[in-house]
């Protein structure tokens, strides 16, 4: 936890979230593990950003810190003009209802609620009225119109992920954080979900940050950040699956050779 009290750095209208000097260190003196080392990064509004890297690179940690699910050892995170890294639990909880959306790899839905109840869950918690028009639009676009009163157990994996997407979108959050959203899906269903995420960015101006290890998934993003050993080593604009694969391979090899030294 950083002891510096900083004022949030001014954000331009194009940056929805940023991190400055972000570090996360686990363990004590003898056995420290540096998951993130002094990372600076900006995320543009209305853009789809993918974060990639070999295992242990710190990509998941970065996303957790951005989303306020974890507290940094040092540095700051600002999201939608709020200094996320300095908020307490109560304030963070409030933020999660309206300014953040989450899509996990699996177990996205509450099993005892219907699809409709799952979708409006964050808004119900916040006691904010649901924008019915927006909801209808999202539901139709995702092809869930006939499934609203079903329970998760009655839906396929792909349908469940789509419900999770709907939930993330309905509250119109500042950022949607997706952690390997297509990891448990077959390629066809996965492509469906990714297509929809990209469309929500293009058509609705939604900002999405996605952690993935799949080059095909990364190809749907506007920008890909590559992490290794707690640093951002490179990035790529307008990626394709092949270009991503190439860079990923190089990063992995470099990281491994560093380790062998």
């Amino acid at each position: 936890m950083s002891l510096r009290i900083t004022l949030p750095a001014p954000q331009s209208s194009t940056v929805i979230a940023h991190a400055r000097g972000l570090s996360k260190v686990y363990g004590s003196r003898a056995t420290t593990v540096t998951a993130l080392d002094n990372v600076d990064v900006d995320f543009e509004r209305g853009k789809f950003t993918a974060i990639m890297g070999p295992s242990g690179s710190g990509k998941s940690t970065l996303m957790h810190l951005l989303a306020g699910l974890d507290t940094p050892t040092s540095g700051e995170v600002v999201l939608a003009r709020r200094a996320v890294s300095q908020l307490n639990q109560r304030q963070l909880t409030k933020l999660r209802r309206t300014e953040m959306g989450f899509i996990f790899q699996s177990f996205n839905l509450i099993p005892t609620l219907t699809a409709a109840e799952n979708i409006t869950l964050p808004l119900d918690i916040a006691r904010v009225a649901v924008d019915q028009e927006h909801m209808t639009r999202v539901v139709t676009a995702l092809g869930l119109a006939g499934r609203l009163h079903h329970r998760p157990a009655e839906m396929s994996g792909g349908q469940q992920q789509r419900v999770a997407c709907a939930r993330a979108l309905v509250s119109k959050p500042a950022v949607i954080f997706a952690d390997e959203p297509t990891g448990n899906l077959d390629s066809a269903t996965g492509r469906e979900v990714l297509t929809f995420l990209r469309r929500s960015v293009d058509d609705l101006g939604q900002s999405v940050v996605m952690v993935t290890h799949d080059p095909v998934a990364a190809s749907y993003a506007h920008r890909v950040l590559f992490l290794a050993d707690g640093h951002i080593v490179t990035e790529q604009e307008d990626p394709t699956a092949e270009s991503v694969l190439q860079v990923l391979g190089a990063v992995t090899r470099a990281s491994r050779s560093l380790q062998e030294v």
Partner: peptide, 16 residues
């Protein structure tokens, strides 16, 4: 536990 984590992630407060 997972369910609780999910609920907290979508903004359910501790008290609730």
């Amino acid at each position: 536990t997972r369910e609780i984590g999910l609920l907290r992630a979508v903004g359910l407060g501790r008290g609730h």
